[in-house]
């Protein structure tokens, strides 16, 4: 099954280019140019596995978006992407449950590795939950 990626960045040319490249590599890509839009898209698409999010955005920034995504859909893995690494935002991002923190412009292979890693983590989580549910449902029987 193809991995569904939600791409969030206020820089639309970047989103477009990256989306095309990811699509070409077999990912399902949903794009968004702001935090609120991303949150709607996330609700519309329950199939989204991994979120790639820019940290510095006008209005709702990456950290805030990350926090909201995590509270809405804790199972979704988030990879932060930024023009530059500020220690504070990196630490904060990690603390809020981001998977990793990548610098722009980032290497495509590295990004893909990270996406797979995120997907793997998410699947493991889902399996565990499914397992738990089965156990939970199975027990009384």
């Amino acid at each position: 099954m193809a991995i569904t990626v939600l791409l969030i960045d206020d820089e639309s040319p970047f989103v477009e280019a990256l989306a095309k490249r990811l699509l070409k590599r077999g990912f399902v890509v949903v794009t968004s140019t702001s935090g609120p839009e991303a949150l709607t898209k996330l609700q519309e698409n329950p199939s989204i596995d991994v979120v790639i999010c820019d940290v510095k955005m006008p209005g709702m920034d990456g950290i805030e978006t990350l926090r909201l995504i995590k509270s809405e859909r804790p199972i979704v893995e988030v990879i932060l992407l930024t023009g530059h690494a500020t220690v504070q935002s990196a630490i904060q991002g990690m603390r809020l449950g981001a998977l990793d923190y990548l610098m722009k412009p980032c290497d495509m292979d590295l990004l893909i590795t990270k996406i797979h890693e995120a997907k793997g983590k998410k699947s493991a989580h889902e399996n565990k939950i499914a397992q738990a549910l089965i156990e939970l449902e199975g027990l009384p029987k």
Binding site: E11, F14, A17, G83, K104
Partner: peptide, 20 residues
Amino acid sequence: AHEINNPVAVMVEEAGWMQD
């Protein structure tokens, strides 16, 4: 640095796309 990184990122992505 911050302002330059974004356009550079776009350029690199576009170049990558062309390579693809």
